[in-house]
Amino acid sequence: MHQRSRFDSVREFIVEKTVLLSGLASIVFVLLIFVFLLKEGLRTFGIVSLEDFLLGRKWYPISSPPKFGILPLIGGTLAVTVGATLLSVPFGIASAFYIAEVAGPRMKEMLKTGIELLAAIPSVVIGFLGMVIVAPFIGDLFDLPTGQTALSGAVMLSLMAMPTIVSIAEDAITAIPGKYREAALALGATRWEYICRIAVRAAAPGIVAAVMLGIGRVIGETMAVMMITGNSAQIPHSLLQPVRTMTATIAAEMGETVPGGDHYAALFAIGLVLFVITFFVNLVADVFLHKDRGTVQ
């Protein structure tokens, strides 16, 4: 049997290997990120123990001797994340149901475009507005010495988590097989009863994934929190205190460090902690996202 020309087979071979390499690039980059965080950050644990690093209550990176305890930073991230999640989850999920089940087609298109635009606003712009509008407002509202607090950060970050939560939850709700809806409505249920009793359960894994990805977004957010939350590395006792998150610490302090120095290494170690946290958050989200849908009794 005749064969194709040599040129054709060589071309096929080259193309196949090239696209395979492009596919492998993602794996390579994830490994490279991990390797470089380790390479630059691991040295920190020669200076402080892992326990003192994670649970140390003092972050004084430039005092002598320096203290590298990131508990205040973890506390800051936690405060902002919890605040933003509490704000964005109920609103985000309610809006997802509205868009998926209630809104007419025109309205739906408009809302989705709006949500998309919200997602497109650069975080530095959100940070800027938080700084000049929201923080002073919150300061006045609660009569605080400064409005640059965890709460101000949480409010702005809830806006940034919103598009993720709304769009992924909406996808999950829309993906519920139409037969459930038809069956429920045929049995005389109202659309609201369908949403409460069936849609919520059927879309639950997707909604959990939406929340997880929203949380991942909040934990990783940098510029806005750096500009709004007051940058004070102390363990917060309320949302009305200034805080400093892990991300903001890296962004704010990296400029002052000497590459290769202790402070520099400690910032990479914080990056490593962030990397590990977001890795698991995304992994869990993905597991939920690919869970079989439609397990309604």
């Binding site: 990120i33 990397f275 958050v281």
Partner: peptide, 10 residues
Amino acid sequence: GVPSVVYGLF
């Protein structure tokens, strides 16, 4: 999912 500032470090 990697935070943008971690990309900065990388």
